[in-house]
Design a protein around this nucleic acid. Structure first.
Lengths: 241, 241
DNA sequence: CGAATGATTGAATAGCATCAAGGACCGTGG
DNA sequence: CCACGGTCCTTGATGCTATTCAATCATTCG
């Protein structure tokens, strides 16, 4: 398994550096947070990085010397819980920030779920930039607030006791975060990753997908594509009936 | 149940406005984040508020027009999950920030667990201040990162399947966050609140405390005071044996 | 002191984890 | 194009653990 960076054939036609979230006081529109000027400023310290699926970007406990902006692809944040067990702390999508640290060390490991391109920003340079550009920093603040809300939602999911509810809430989350197009939900991750995120056994996740399909609530095209058929009952599950 | 504010006998001898967390690049020392100058600036827009135990500071869905700094006491953030069910999204302690919102609405309800004093900061004024004081804003950013880590830890707790592990991890969390003095752990909240946080039934929490006591791992003085007796086995539970 | 809230304990049930085996899919190389 | 290996996924049978329902006990506060 490749260890890390390795800037592949990604160099031409890079998607732009960007961060998106709901500003604190706005009306719920997911807007681009960065102005052109800010993007330019960030690009000055941001190095594009391409990784293959399965590659580890960094490991829990490593010295945290960079923050990443995800431009393309899906990655997962893993956390060791006890020896030899790992849970999925979060899935991260384009326009998300990556690199949460504590006392100079990363608190999660980050692994690419799909091929991904990121912008690597050294913390020292970033911190210097933020500390004298309040406007730019404000956008980072909004983004972190967004990730905080997302983490709380995750906790809500894990609080539900029924397997169907957990899985349905997870699908609803994907629907919101990835392109919520009418073409159905795209699951970039494996069943095992889903299990790690919703804290169920792999087998239970599998059975639950089956059950949802049998009941006509969702249609499972293949492992990576799901569509909601009965929106009414689906929503009832999500709200935890 | 009293609805909200009501500035009681708290006005004299107020604890100072402050925020504490681990700065991103520091060496893990829980430091005061605010300089004296910043404290003075914040106090200009911060109104002290005292609430009784059980009082609701604000409700999920309310227009989010203020952020609060908790100065004294313990409060809980509740989230509605389905009709008529509530989970505890977080417990908040002195020096924590309160008032997470999305699209101008609070995402949690906040209720005082003990009598509490807070500093109320209108978002508009705060936002204006942050947007042109990068240094101050940086401290807020660090604080939100801290709460993000805390929320992820919460998710880790909820991911563990065994009741003893969940409860032990909860106690460990309290030990870290409240005064981690050798005098034992102080539980300001009810068993029912604990159950809401670790996502177990009230009865299971009760039984689990009992079991931990019977096994000589903890001593339960009364409902609000617990002491770890067998640190070795306790830590083994926390790491999820 | 008495009512209301909070906590404990017991017995029965439901639901998920676990163990175990088989089947589908993917990428590789012939 | 097809065969092959590995990974990922599905399905079944069993046991364990937390939930639930129900009743009793303790504590706090008026």
């Amino acid at each position: 398994m490749p260890r890390s960076t390795g800037r592949g054939a990604h160099d031409e036609r890079l998607p732009p550096m960007d961060i998106k979230a709901v500003p604190m006081t706005a009306n719920g529109i997911r807007a681009s947070l960065l102005t052109d000027a800010e993007r330019r400023e960030l690009v000055a310290i941001a190095v594009p990085v391409g990784v293959r699926a399965g590659a580890t970007l960094y490991r829990q406990g490593d010295r945290a010397d960079a923050v990443y902006g995800l431009a393309q692809g899906v990655v997962k944040a893993l956390r060791r819980t006890g020896a030899s067990k790992r849970t999925v702390a979060a899935f991260l999508f384009p326009h998300d920030l990556i690199g949460l640290s504590e006392a100079g060390r990363y608190v999660n490991s980050v692994v690419a779920v799909t091929p991904a391109t990121l912008y690597r920003m050294p913390v020292t340079a970033l911190e210097r930039m933020l500390r004298h550009n309040a406007e730019l920093e404000y956008h980072f603040l909004c983004k972190v607030c967004h990730e905080l809300r997302e983490a709380q939602r995750h906790a809500v999911v894990l609080g539900r006791k029924s397997a169907v509810t957990r899985v349905a809430m997870f699908l609803a989350m994907l629907e919101r975060r990835e392109h919520a197009n009418a073409g159905g939900i795209h699951l970039a991750m494996t069943r095992s990753d889903v299990a790690g995120y919703v804290a169920l056994s792999l087998e239970s996740v599998s059975r639950t997908f089956r059950a949802l399909e049998r009941d006509g609530i969702i249609a499972v095209r293949d492992r990576h594509h799901v569509r909601v058929l009965d929106r009414k009952r689906f929503d009832r599950l999500v709200s935890g009936a």
